[in-house]
Each structure stands twice: as structure tokens, then as C-alpha cells.
Amino acid sequence: MKVVPSRSSEWVRPVTSQQPASAIIEIDRVSQVFQTSARKDHLALSEISLTIEEGAFVSILGPSGCGKSTLLYIVGGFVSPTSGAARMKGQRITGPGPDRGPVFQEFALFPWKTVLGNVMYGPRQQGVRAHEAETQSRALIEMVGLRGYESFYPKELSGGMKQRVALARTLAYHPEVLLMDEPFGALDAHTRTRLQNDLLNIWERDRKTVLFVTHSVDEAVFLSDKVVMMSKSPGRIREVIDIDLQRPRRRNELLLDPRYQKYVVDIERMFDESDEVGSPS
């Protein structure tokens, strides 16, 4: 450590200076304004500050239109904030990079590539030799439960299978942070539950940092270490709740656990209150 952490520098960066050293992502007073029409500006995000620790599973929970996905896109570097900054390991985020791997609700697979081709795409782009990339990719495909489907094209797969491929494709280039944008939002309830379980199993093996956007309360509580509740118009952080439940989590145990039930009920109640006070609709 150098000697001069002057008071002024602490004052300038209050968010970073008070956080523990393990912070991997810092969101520092980020605001996002969208132009909806010629004169009207829509404040999608207002002065959001948030720190995400390395290895944490953090969910961003909120009603549609609260800017939760936009926040994720800013961390991904796909969208530049109107003001404020997002940092990854202290470096200001200016664009997308392989250290942050997105998984989208729309899957966004490359339809002209087979399952194997999709998963190999990232490693090949990073210069991994074809043979090695294939071995790794086959292992990942097996891990997400799609062994035997390597030569299928995306159009031949169901929604749940597509999202498994998308997850494997992102994991294949070893991002340090997974950015999941309502990844199970387009799936039916049964498939959704299965993917949540599988994601948790995969995550509990290597504990990658995950930023997970969802509008489902039980999904957020079931998966996360921390739930960030957002409210809308303008998008603000309402509450950050630590989910203090043991891991590994088993769905059938958790659903009977009164602490789990209390988290879900409390969070739902908070949303109901904000609805009554908030927008008339």
C-alpha cells in the first residue's frame, strides 16, 4: 500500500472506498436516460450504486420497466450509461468483453451452427486450438445435460434445451462474471424449475459471480445470496436483502423451510406496498 490515501480521494469515490477488497463489480451512481419521443426523456435508471462481491450470486428483482435489464446491459458493456460508471475489478467498463458472459432470455444462439459449433465458438475466437476446444465443449454440453445433441441445430431444440446450450456456450469461454437476463423467462414452469435446479448445481461447483435479472420472487430467493429489489419510474434500488439460507440448496427442502417462505412473503409484500403507493395502473 502507498501512503497517501488522502481524505479527498475517499470523498470522491465513496462507493469503492468503503467496500471490501473482494468486490468484482462496482456500479457507481449510474443513470440512464432514454429518449422516448422528441421532447420526452424517460429516466430508466436513477443514480444506481451497487457493489457485487466475487463469487456471489446476486439477483436483480423488479417489475417490468424498472430498468433491471438495462442495468445488466450496462455491466455487460452493451449499453453506455448516461452518467456514472460501472467498473469491473476497478477498470471502467467501456464495452463488452469475454470476462463478462451474457445469457439472454432470447437465447441468441447462432442458428447456422450446431450445438457443438455454438459452444466451441467462444473458445475458438479466443484462439483455443480446435481439438482442445472441442474436448472442452463436449464436456460442457454433457454438464448441461445435452449429451447426444452435439450435432443438432438450434431449430431442432426446445426452448429449455436452447437455453442450456446458451449457458454452455457462455461458460465455454470462462467469463469471470455471468450476466443472466431473465434467462428462464420464456420457458414453461416445469422446464424453468429444472433449469433453476441445474443452474444451481453447476454454480455450486465453481461459484462464479452471477448477476441474475428476474421478475420472479421465488426464483430470486431460491438462487441468490443477495436480492436487489428495484422499483420503477425512475428505476431505483429499493432494498438489498441478504438471503441467509444454507448451501447446497435443495428445492424440496427449501420449499418447506420457514425461513425461505418468510423471505418470499416479505419480498412480495414489499412489492405490493410499492404498487399501492406507486403507479396508478
Binding site: 455487460g76 463488452p96 469475454p98 447462432f110 475466437q125
Partner: peptide, 29 residues
């Protein structure tokens, strides 16, 4: 061409020109 597909490519490190040739071209084929 789906925006998210291009974002996925960008996250893998494809440059704008690479995205045009290796994502937009095959997707629009």
C-alpha cells in the same frame, strides 16, 4: 439480425468487422 446475437459475439471478443462477416452474413444468408 437479432441484436442479442451480436452482443453475444461482442462478448466473445468479435470486432465489428468480424461481427459483420461472421454473424450478420450467415444470419442473413
Amino acid at each position: 439480425v437479432e441484436e442479442k446475437m451480436l452482443w453475444s459475439g461482442a462478448a466473445m471478443g468479435l470486432s465489428p468487422l468480424q461481427r459483420l462477416v461472421r454473424i450478420v452474413l450467415p444470419a442473413a444468408l
